[in-house]
Computed example of a mutant assay.
Amino acid sequence: MTFSRLFWQVPTALGTCVILLFLVLLVNECAVARPSKRTKDIAYRETGSPGFSAERHVLDVYAPTKKRAGGYPVVLFIHGGNWDSGSKNIYWFIGRRLAKQGVVAVIINYRLAPNVLVPAMADDCADAVLWTTRHIAEYGGDPNRIFTMGHSAGGGLAALMATKDELFTGLGLTRNPVKGAILDDPAGLDMYDYLQKMEYPNDQQYLVPFGKDPTVWRSVSPMYFVGKDSPPMLLYTGGKTYPSISISGGVFDRKLTGLGIKHTYIVMAGKKHVPMVTQLFWANNLIYRDLLKFVGAK
């Protein structure tokens, strides 16, 4: 069905409003795209290496077109999707919004269940961070200012990147390169506790990505790796999100506070889980406003 035939079936007044909205969004996207450049489907793991996936071991870079001395801060975004779905291609708008506001954005894919367990997903994310440290200067980013960001399952992985130093020492780095994390309604902050309790309907589904070994659950739970030397964080949960996310977010906040980790914790009134990320379509958003200050964008 063509675009024109689609709107021919909509009542005239409503059709006119929908067309106008479409045109406004199209003009807005053109305006956002002009100050930035997207480089798609860059492999962050060596092609042909064991386990390499041409679909999942890739990332997109969104960079301001104007160069800056010293480079721009970098935000590496990890998508959600229940650890078994999702794609970087959905989140182009985050890349565009950040690049327009003086941030180099790296939006990544990683392998998913049931093909791998969460520890392998964490290894993929760490490999993407490693690639970023080595190559982001080529795209105008500052390799010394890399921050992780994620929503839902991606939020838990973003927190793990910031707190589990072993992920990077195992790759040959002497220190964790992540300077901070932005966690948007993060899931999986404490799967060790969650999977022992099994309090909610359908919790058995999480044994697919996490397996049945409690030591594995703990190994990918940021709650057990955050320490006094962990970097600062921004933590947001929706006022109407899933109870498990709300509860673990509050516990994580209290642990950060107890350890003296600089952070901000905000419960966004009335927000459900999915709108916590779709709100990032709009540039003048609380999370973006906080993020730009947090990463030192100018």
Rank of each mutant, 00 (worst) to 15 (best):
L98F: 14
L235G: 01
A31M: 13
H79R: 05
T39Y: 12
V103L: 01
C125E: 11
Y265M: 04
M223W: 11
T132W: 03
I146S: 01
G95L: 04
G156D: 09
I94W: 06
F3R: 14
M149D: 01
Y139T: 06
A113M: 03
S36G: 12
H79L: 04
D203H: 08
T16W: 11
V106G: 00
G258T: 13
S53I: 10
W8P: 02
P232H: 03
Y236V: 08
Y236N: 02
E29C: 10
A105S: 10
L286V: 10
A283S: 15
A269I: 05
D123G: 06
G140C: 05
G141E: 04
Q204N: 13
N176P: 08
G296K: 01
C125H: 07
E166Y: 04
N89D: 15
L6V: 13
F7L: 14
F294S: 03
V178D: 00
H151C: 01
G258L: 07
T132M: 03
G227A: 11
A113E: 02
D229K: 13
A69V: 11
A54I: 08
V61G: 00
K255D: 06
K272N: 08
L6Y: 14
E29H: 13
L26N: 04
K255F: 07
A137E: 07
G170L: 11
D203W: 09
W131H: 06
G227C: 09
S244R: 08
K88P: 10
A113F: 01
M223F: 15
I78Q: 01
A54D: 13
L259M: 12
A128S: 14
V32Q: 06
P231I: 04
S230E: 07
N202K: 15
P209L: 05
L160W: 08
G238C: 03
P232T: 06
D229N: 14
P50E: 12
S36D: 05
N284D: 15
T264I: 09
T237G: 01
E138F: 02
L189C: 11
N115P: 00
L76E: 02
P232W: 00
L195T: 05
S246P: 00
L259P: 07
D142I: 09
T169L: 03
D41S: 14
F52P: 07
K197L: 13
P186K: 08
F77K: 04
K271W: 08
K197S: 09
V61H: 00
A283P: 02
T215F: 03
Y265L: 05
K228I: 10
G227V: 01
K66V: 14
D190P: 05
